[in-house]
């Protein structure tokens, strides 16, 4: 390709990266700005961090978010691993159909799934609240968890397990000593992914949250709608940093098409 086209392409990529990151960087900078009206030039201050420390409501929501995300990571990681193993290692009737069933939860707009869950929560009498949020987060993380673990299993093959079985290991030993360690990075990636999905989930939590039982994104949304509270800059900055750390961790364990 001629070098002028190459240069043009590099300029475009730079512009796109700028577009994607500038607003986020501005928001992070404003978290440290003393002026509540985002006045420039920035007067550096940690006053909004102190405000956050005094904000009971946001802190409770943050604790809820972490708890739900952790539970989602554990449950979706475990159930996702089992299902991925079942889909990858066993041949049974309806297997293709079950794989196809993973798509609707991903493809249907969240607003519809959220409303549907709200209807069922009231119908069955379990109501809104943290339990309903947890159930929904696990459900929405599961398809991703199954796919992530599944791709790890597909990449491993069965040679090691067959060798172990030939050498006299019983199925239990094969599962715990061979299969599990081999697919462990996939399981960890799936769990982290589920944690991130739950931690950042707004739309569905929004429909299922009850007064006093909310998550951080729901509280942030309420605060933004009320008006401009600079504390939200601080919370958002923390959220972004948590997500970035998770993303880097996951990419270490699992490459989503980064390598050919």
């Amino acid at each position: 390709m001629s070098s002028s086209i190459r240069l043009l392409g590099q300029a475009l990529v730079t512009l796109v990266i700028g577009f994607l990151y500038l607003p986020i960087l501005v928001m992070i900078a404003m978290a440290f700005n003393k002026s509540p009206y985002y006045q420039l030039p920035i007067e550096w201050s940690l006053r909004w961090f102190n405000d956050l420390l005094a904000d009971q409501r946001l802190q409770e929501a943050a604790v809820n978010s972490v708890l739900i995300a952790t539970a989602t990571a554990v449950i979706a990681g475990a159930l996702g691993t089992l299902a991925a193993l079942g889909l990858a290692r066993y041949r049974f009737f309806g297997r293709g159909f079950l794989k196809a069933l993973l798509l609707p939860p991903i493809a249907i707009p969240w607003v519809i799934i959220g409303c549907a869950m709200l209807i069922l929560a009231f119908w069955t009498g379990i109501g809104r609240g943290l339990h309903a949020i947890l159930i929904s987060h696990v459900a929405l993380s599961l398809p991703y968890a199954i796919m992530v673990v599944g791709s790890r299993i597909a990449g491993q093959g069965t040679a090691c397990e067959e060798a172990a079985a030939t050498l006299g290991a019983n199925p239990r030993q094969v599962a715990l000593r061979i299969t599990l360690p081999l697919i462990a990075p996939g399981i960890v990636a799936a769990s982290l992914f589920s944690f991130a999905t739950s931690f950042d989930m707004f739309v569905i939590s929004y429909f299922l949250a009850a007064p006093g039982q909310t998550t951080l994104p729901v509280e942030i949304y309420a605060s933004i709608k009320e008006g401009f509270t600079p504390v939200i800059n601080v919370v958002s900055t923390i959220l972004i940093l948590v997500s970035f750390v998770l993303a880097v961790l996951i990419s270490r364990l699992h490459d989503f098409g980064t390598k050919q």
Partner: peptide, 12 residues
Amino acid sequence: LILLPFWTSGLV
């Protein structure tokens, strides 16, 4: 860098 925003909250 392009993958990262993917992981961050859409709301944020």
